[in-house]
């Protein structure tokens, strides 16, 4: 069943991204379903991070359309929006492959900055805040509550007053997710959240992501290399290779897709034709052929 094609949170349609002579993403289309954990996987250099950067507005795609749907039925064309408006209005938040925290600021401060836009409004764009209006104090209290909630969920409460740069790697990853969640996103994009984590931390991350899916009404799109994580928690997997989509389906479907296996394991030059034939057969009919080992 293709649940993600019916209850759509984000749809990427025929998107291409070109850097000079390099076509990093080629005519890519896929959907992210509401309440799903969607994984974007593929070998190194497949264009995954580029897709992310296009969705979150850091790059403008050369062609194609990216639409975010809100619960209220509103639509946002992300490729036309300024990068900072995407988290603000379309409610799409992200993390980075090489963690980007406000290192000199404490964990709590990081989470407060994550709530900048509502707090800014509450402080009457600073003018009320300077005068010390009580409405701002109330809003700040609520913001601290939200920050506390996410610190608790990520197990960072005991480090609330430590500088973000002081945290070990695994906790930095969690803090980045917590900060993104503080923007109250509808779609959370995670760029290799499990990279560099030890098995226990990886386990905790899974639990956190499952919690977000279950409780927060937030869809998750993630890039991941760790197949254990991907297979364990994803509902929907999109596979990229050389900028093109080669598979799209449930973990079961993708796991058995010969094209995916070929892309991941690599095929020697002599075998290319064989594999192509097999794939051809696969697509046209039986689908019983085993992938080359």
């Amino acid at each position: 069943m293709t649940r993600w094609n019916e209850d759509i949170l984000l749809s990427v349609e025929r998107m291409s991204m070109r850097f000079g002579g390099l076509l990093a993403v080629d005519d890519l289309s896929f959907n992210v379903g509401k309440g799903d954990i969607t994984a974007l996987i593929g070998p190194n250099g497949a264009g995954k991070t580029t897709v992310f950067n296009c969705i979150t507005g850091f790059y403008k795609p050369t062609a194609g359309r990216i639409t975010a749907h809100t619960l209220e039925g509103e639509k946002f064309l992300l490729e036309r929006m300024d990068d900072f408006r995407i988290p603000k209005q379309a409610k799409v938040a992200r993390t980075f492959q090489n963690i980007r925290l406000f290192g000199g600021m404490t964990v709590l401060e990081n989470l407060m900055v994550g709530q900048h836009n509502p707090l800014m409004k509450a402080s009457k764009f600073t003018f009320g805040g300077i005068l010390g209006l009580s409405s701002y104090k109330e809003a700040e209290k609520q913001a601290i509550e939200l920050a506390k909630y996410w610190m608790e969920k990520t197990g960072l409460t005991y480090r609330a007053d430590d500088a973000a740069a002081d945290l070990p790697y695994g906790e930095q990853r969690k803090l980045e997710i917590a900060r993104a969640m503080c923007t109250r996103p509808k779609l959370l994009c995670l760029d290799e959240p499990a990279a560099g984590l030890n098995p226990r931390e990886s386990e905790e991350l899974n639990a956190l992501l499952l919690h977000i899916r279950a409780e927060e009404d937030t869809g998750i799109l993630l890039i991941e290399h760790d197949m254990n994580v991907v297979m364990e928690i994803s509902d929907h997997i999109v596979v990229l290779d050389y900028g093109e989509k080669i598979a799209d389906g449930t973990p079961e479907e993708v796991r058995n897709d010969p094209k995916v296996i070929a892309a991941y394991l690599g095929v020697s030059d002599e075998d290319v034709e064989n594999v192509e034939q097999q794939i051809e057969q696969d697509v046209t009919g039986s689908g019983e052929t085993e992938a080359p080992k």
Binding site: T56, G57, F58, D83, F84, R85, I86, P87, K88, A93, R94, T95, F96, R100, L101, F102, G103, G104, M105, V113, G114, H116, N117, R179, A180, C182, T183
Partner: peptide, 11 residues
């Protein structure tokens, strides 16, 4: 601290 991170959370 980090301008890109700022933009990623809507500043």
């Amino acid at each position: 601290e980090d301008e890109i991170a700022c933009r990623s959370i809507g500043l």
